[in-house]
């Protein structure tokens, strides 16, 4: 018996010498490991399921085109345009609206948010209208935009700007509140004036939160785009989707959705790069 024990333990010891078993503390939650393979597999499964359901006509063809048909529609829209405009005119029109609205929302949202974080009066004054309007779905006040501002570009951009304004204001306000009192005290004891305190301490401290707010608001902007382009538009990705739906051109609707998804993803990615460049210290400390 004793020789058996020795024989069984010997290979295990040898294996241990060549490649030690790496261990780490057990952790709760999903952890930080890359989920890329799982995510890719998940995407592949969804694509395959779509292909099978469409090819086997489990769902009527009118409702669900095959992946190949959507790809063909994409190529044809890219080459010949759709609804009296080229693809670039559609995308350009939508991008212009998003950028204009973002510029307004950022230019107003950051200073107002900072002010609300610093000053009791500013917070009291602006809290009421912002808390009232921001939970509203943009579609609910879309008719008002049309009645007040007409059916031109103004109403579309104002609608988008309103939707994008709230996340920026709220994040700038939260950013000011997250400034540590110790940092402020340190600056004051080094002789900072009120203006220097704002520029050197408060603004950089609030910057990570503000950038997160801008990222969220861009997401909201893309989400509101289709609603904005419901208003008598002749260009835009939202308009492309709406007009395709009138003709039950489901493949074109899919293409439009894909374009919005790609744009939104690109924006989100660009914001992450901007964050990595502007606030490399985020998460340190």
């Amino acid at each position: 018996m004793t020789s058996d024990v020795a024989a069984t333990s010997a290979p295990a010891e040898r294996a241990h010498e060549s490649a030690p078993r790496l261990v780490k503390m057990r952790r709760f939650g999903a952890g930080e490991g890359s989920t890329l393979p799982i995510s890719l597999a998940s995407g592949a499964v969804i694509l395959a399921a779509w292909w099978i359901v469409a090819e086997l006509r489990i769902v009527p063809h009118l409702f669900l085109p095959t992946p190949a048909e959507v790809a063909n529609a994409a190529v044809s829209i890219f080459q010949d345009g759709y609804a009296n405009a080229t693809l670039f005119e559609h995308v350009g029109a939508s991008l212009l609206r998003i950028f204009a609205a973002a510029a307004i929302a950022i230019a107003l949202g950051i200073p107002i948010g900072l002010l609300m974080g610093l000053n009791k009066w500013a917070k009291g004054v602006f809290d009421t209208p912002i808390e009232f309007y921001w939970p509203l779905p943009p579609l609910a006040y879309l008719p008002l935009m049309i009645i007040w501002l007409g059916i031109g570009e103004t109403s579309k951009i104002v609608l988008l700007a309103l939707a994008m304004f709230a996340p920026i204001v709220l994040s700038a306000q939260a950013g000011v509140r997250s400034v540590s009192q110790e940092r402020v005290n340190a600056a004051l004891s080094l002789g900072a004036t009120r203006f220097q305190l704002m520029r050197e301490i408060v603004l950089p401290s609030a910057l990570p939160e503000i950038l997160t707010g801008i990222r969220i608001s861009l997401g909201v902007g893309w989400g509101t785009l289709v609603a904005a382009e419901l208003i008598a538009a002749t260009r835009g990705i939202g308009y492309l989707i709406m007009s395709a739906s009138h003709f039950l051109a489901t493949d074109v609707v899919f293409v439009g959705i894909g374009i919005i998804a790609a744009c939104a993803f690109a924006f989100s990615f660009a914001m992450r790069l901007l964050e990595a460049w502007l606030v490399p210290w985020k998460g340190q400390n």
Partner: peptide
């Protein structure tokens, strides 16, 4: 600035280098 304070938890600014942190009071 006539009274320098050193805190228990250092209140250094992470967006500035070490030498810029030290120079902060002079910048002000």
């Amino acid at each position: 600035a006539d009274r320098g304070v050193v805190f228990q938890k250092d209140a250094l600014l992470p967006w500035k280098t070490v030498v810029e942190n030290v120079a902060l009071g002079l910048k002000f």
